[in-house]
Design a protein around this nucleic acid. Structure first.
Length: 583
RNA sequence: GCGCUCUUAGCUCAGCUGGAUAGAGCAUCGGUUUUCUAAACCGAGGGUCGCAGGUUCGAAUCCUGCAGAGCGCGCCA
């Protein structure tokens, strides 16, 4: 990372190190209190810092001339042009124009690589598991947010150099899958002319009829020969296989692909995973047979104290210990999931990321506990919980019920809304905030809609560049060798340029905090200041981008416009939306 | 009852992990097209950052309590 913000941070840290060495501030000085502000709104400088305020407070040598010292040190930094202290102690700084230009040319040189960070620990392997919707029906709204978030986060993390594995965990065993198989069998019988009744817990969706028809057409003879048990297995497996197929298609249309699908059945079939987990926990004395307390408040029918095999997750800060075995001796879902995470740990990941829906929020602590336990605290698990998406149409929130199977499907939303707005909206709000997704607003193709607002900014800027496609001097490929002349650059453009060259820092924040919404905030801001500048050209010809009478002026402007386009393209690519040069 | 998350303009959301006068968009009102894309721009009004304490030079941001909303709470996955 060598953007101007990170560079300045590093130089500040250097100064602090020296002050500690010279015993002027204490060794335990908290470096995190130092802040560098690059917000273009402050208008007090290109960047500013609270360095003086914070250092002044922690001085051991009270008579130390701190102000002069900082001035002396900052004067050594070649990229700074002007240093001023405000009355309340903030330091405001203006950057060197040549420095800014060198950063801008870097954008053009690096092009689609611009914004990549050279990480210190670049060999880090990350596994990111998302969607993992149960293969009992098509993917719907509830899965959408996590799907897009997981995808964009994967894009960002691999962009900054991690080895990222995108993984989908298929829960293809257990009670629900048995019910699914039964439901499909009923549909099959129905097609054969039998009277059937779909019971309360069974799956009523039409998609099973289609699958049943497929079986009838292709496998009828084969089924007749099977005994009851084999029939159960056949229908169960067939249902899962077909449903996963449609899930893959729906997600692909949303722009989402996975590297690996791991099936729960494969984790369980091979008992080694769960046996290993059991062994480790036993060695660590984290297992015991015992009783759980009945949860207070809510009445639980048929509550009976039960002796169960329990994991001491409370040792790791969980609210209660958690059962690993059911009464009938089967492993619980939690046990299987532990085995699955053990499997992931064994695949040599340094970091596991799980993207979950809000309905799993109660499982965060126990999952972190078990990963901590079985990995000897070597692997960390980061769980990102997405709040719900409430769909609104005609000013009414759409009611959905699982039982009636009337969830809005991703497939249908893609048809109504389109991929780009859907993806954009799913990540432009930070994951902890619930989204009110107003379908009527999102399909608008104007400034009400931030996706089109940003895409339009890209198209507008492209229209300028494309004017010079066939111009030997001014075409975009030749810009690297050209020089920007700051006398043609207005203060408004300078602001835009400062935003453009802040892009690597945005990537840094977005990747380390796992917050893709910082990218959409950033490009919305970039779009705003660009549109605003564009319109200035209407009243004031000096702000116009093309000046046929002055080629050096035009070159200077085209350089930053093309750099901005590169940043837009890179941002759009990470988000997974189109960059169209014409709209 | 317990846990996690949330509460910022009429609405939808930001607020850069403690900074300077709290920001956008929508909605409302008023203006800007013989000109590189008006799918845009400019201006106005609109706020006790849920409430109350605390921490310090400084709090929307951190801590505590309270109120409200969402999700979850032993054999569903």
């Amino acid at each position: 990372m060598n953007d101007y913000i990170s560079t300045f941070y590093n130089d500040i840290y250097h100064i602090i190190d020296n002050l500690i060495k010279d015993n002027i501030i204490p060794k335990d000085f908290n470096i995190k209190k130092i802040n560098v502000d690059f917000s273009s709104k402050s208008k007090r400088g290109d960047i500013s810092t609270n360095l003086y305020i914070i250092l002044n407070k922690s001085l051991i040598k009270k008579d130390f001339e701190l102000k002069n010292y900082i001035l002396f040190e900052f004067n050594k930094l070649s990229y700074l042009n002007k240093i001023t202290f405000s009355n309340n102690g903030f330091i405001n700084l203006i950057l060197n124009d040549d420095y800014i230009f060198s950063k801008l040319i870097e954008v053009i040189k690096k092009n689609h690589e611009y914004g990549k960070i050279i990480l210190k620990n670049k060999d880090k392997n990350i596994n990111i598991e998302y969607v993992s919707a149960n293969p009992t029906g098509p993917v719907h709204v509830a899965h959408m947010r996590g799907a897009v978030l997981g995808d964009v986060l994967s894009n960002i993390l691999s962009f900054v150099g991690y080895n990222v594995t995108r993984e989908y965990y298929v829960n293809d065993t257990g009670t629900q899958i048995n019910i699914l198989g039964k439901s499909l069998y009923k549909r099959y019988l129905q097609l054969l002319g039998e009277q059937i009744e779909i019971e309360k817990d069974e799956y009523p969706g039409d998609y099973l009829i289609k699958i049943a028809k497929n079986i009838l057409d292709n496998h009828k003879n084969e089924i007749i020969k099977k005994n009851i048990k084999d029939k159960d297995i056949f229908f169960k497996n067939y249902a899962v296989k077909e449903i996963i197929k449609t899930i893959k298609i729906d997600l692909k249309n949303l722009g989402i692909l996975f590297d690996t699908y791991t099936h729960e059945s494969s984790i369980i079939d091979n008992n080694s995973n769960i046996n290993e987990v059991f062994k480790i926990l036993k060695e660590k004395e984290l297992l015991y047979e015992g009783f759980l307390n009945k949860p207070k408040g809510e009445d639980i029918k048929n509550w009976k104290p039960r002796k169960q095999l329990l994991f001491k997750s409370s040792y790791y800060g969980d609210d209660s210990d958690r059962p690993l075995k059911k009464e009938n001796g089967e492993w619980t879902y939690f046990a299987n999931d532990s085995a699955y995470h053990y499997n992931k740990i064994n695949r040599n990941y340094n970091l596991l990321i799980n993207v979950w829906g809000a309905d799993h929020i109660g499982y965060v602590k126990r999952m972190k506990s078990i990963v901590d336990a079985i990995s000897n605290s070597k692997v960390s698990l980061n769980i990102i919980v997405c709040q719900i998406v409430k769909l609104i149409k005609n000013n009414q929130s759409l009611k959905m019920s699982k039982r009636e199977g009337n969830y809005i499907l991703i497939k249908d939303l893609l048809k109504d809304v389109g991929k780009d707005p859907l993806r954009y909206y799913m990540i432009s709000t930070k994951n902890e905030t619930p989204i009110d997704f107003n379908i009527d607003e999102v399909i608008k193709q104007n400034k009400d809609n931030p996706v089109f607002y940003c895409q339009y900014a890209y198209a507008r800027s492209s229209s300028v560049i494309n004017k010079f496609k066939n111009d030997n001097i001014l075409n975009s490929e030749n810009l690297i060798n050209k020089k920007i002349d700051f006398k043609f650059i207005s203060k408004y453009e300078r602001e835009i340029i400062l935003q453009i060259i802040a892009w690597p820092y945005i990537i840094f924040q977005s990747s380390t905090l796992c917050q893709p919404h910082r990218i959409t905030n950033y490009i919305e801001n970039l779009s705003t200041i660009f549109h605003s500048f564009w319109n200035k050209g209407k009243d004031h010809s000096e702000y116009r981008l093309i000046d046929n009478s002055n080629i050096n002026k035009t070159i200077s402007k085209i350089i930053w416009i093309d750099s901005m386009r590169i940043v837009f393209r890179n941002a759009f690519k990470l988000i997974g939306i189109e960059a169209n040069e014409k709209m």
